[in-house]
Amino acid sequence: MAETTAEDRRTETRRTGLYDLHLELGARMVPFAGWQMPVQYPMGVMAEHLHTREKAGLFDVSHMGQVLVWPEDGRLETAALALESLIPADVLGLPEGRQRYGLFTNDRGGVLDDLMFANRGDHYLLVVNAACAAQDIDLLHTLSGVRVEQVTDRGLLALQGPLAEAALAALVPGAAGMRFMDSLAHGWEGESLWISRSGYTGEDGFEISVPAARLEDFARALLDRPDVAPIGLGARDSLRLEAGMPLYGHDMDAEVTPVEAALGWSIPKVRRTGGARAGGFPGAERVLDELAAGASAIRRGLRPEGRAPIREGVALYAEAAGGEPVATVRSGGFGPSVGGPVAMALIPAEIPEGAVLHAELRGKRLPVRVTALPFVSPNFKR
């Protein structure tokens, strides 16, 4: 095993089961959400991004929290209704072997975290953000009638890109038959892999939960496939940004509602109006009001003119000179597939798509155009 460095001790970060493999592959490691994670490999961020769009990229996402929620009475409905008291999604209506996107909200209607939840027949599997995992698990422990179990003996990989299916099917043939948002267990060399057909890049792909003892073996087996390359956090961020996917703590947080974050689609009709299951989640009054009447601002895309990226924190103005900021960039960078800079911000609802705003960058105001999301068309397998 690699030695612990002074920097590791200073930042008190944890390591995934692939830490040594990352170093072997030449990764540049950085602290992220309490973990040492690879930000890039020798290929570089832009090449890693384009490789994922064209072939298949392998991401270590073992820092994410994996949580099991079991009904104490053995009835899955008990766990579903308990989760619906925290998450404004249709948990009860999710079929076995399927997965959905959801949100935890607070009493003000703000987003505490976003997550994936899957119906595994007699319990639910939740995957939550690393930085929010402790908070989310504490929240789940407030529920009655369920048993909450944090998964600590498995790692998590994401295999993304148009050739991901072929690469995974070479090791796990059954994966080829999975649909988008399927979540199923498949065998590999005597181990049970928990596989979902989903991801965070806008490409077809899979997230694969692997027993910790075989995590490196499975990662190496995927990397042995000729079209698979290791990809770091840098390209993961540019890929999700081009795909118009929000990042928790940036594009949404405890002060941003699902409607403002342009995630109202994750709240179905059964949780909005009429019936016993409408509302009933934290902040429901504000969220439901905004779903009906609209929010004062909503997350939208921005295309700056020129090649200079505008990044998080940059102020946006309605005019080329004077006036007060109307918004602030939440996420921004260069989009390698788009061939130019892209960004997202919470834009006042009265500003129409196509309008030109002005980003203040190094003392100058540069024009940026409000545009629809995503910046690249999704390539999911429907």
Rank of each mutant, 00 (worst) to 15 (best):
M1Y: 11
T4A: 07
T4N: 04
H22S: 13
E24Y: 10
A27D: 10
M29S: 13
F32E: 10
V45Q: 08
A47H: 08
H51T: 11
A56I: 10
A56E: 06
L58W: 09
F59G: 07
F59K: 00
S62N: 10
Q66E: 14
L68Y: 14
P71S: 02
D73Y: 02
T78K: 04
A82S: 14
L83Q: 05
D90M: 05
P95S: 04
Q99S: 10
G102V: 06
L103S: 09
F104Y: 12
G110T: 09
L112K: 06
D114T: 09
L115N: 07
A118D: 12
L125Y: 06
N129M: 03
A131L: 03
A134D: 10
A134V: 05
Q135E: 02
S144D: 14
R147K: 13
V151H: 11
G155V: 07
L159F: 07
L159P: 07
Q160I: 11
A166V: 11
A169M: 06
A169G: 12
G177F: 04
S183V: 02
G190F: 00
E191W: 01
I195G: 07
G202L: 05
G202R: 00
D204Q: 05
P211W: 00
R214W: 11
D217H: 08
F218D: 12
L222A: 04
R225P: 01
R225I: 00
D227C: 10
P230E: 00
P230A: 01
L233F: 03
R236M: 01
R236H: 08
S238I: 01
G249T: 02
A254F: 01
E255Y: 05
L263E: 08
L263G: 13
S266I: 15
K269W: 11
R271F: 01
R272Q: 14
F281N: 15
A293T: 15
A293W: 11
G294T: 01
A295S: 14
P309A: 04
V314T: 15
A318R: 08
V326P: 12
A327C: 06
T328V: 09
R330E: 06
G335P: 10
A343T: 10
M344H: 11
M344V: 13
A345C: 08
P348D: 00
E353S: 09
G354E: 06
L361T: 05
R365E: 02
R369Y: 03
R369V: 05
T371F: 03
A372N: 04
L373F: 08
L373M: 10
S377F: 00
R382T: 07
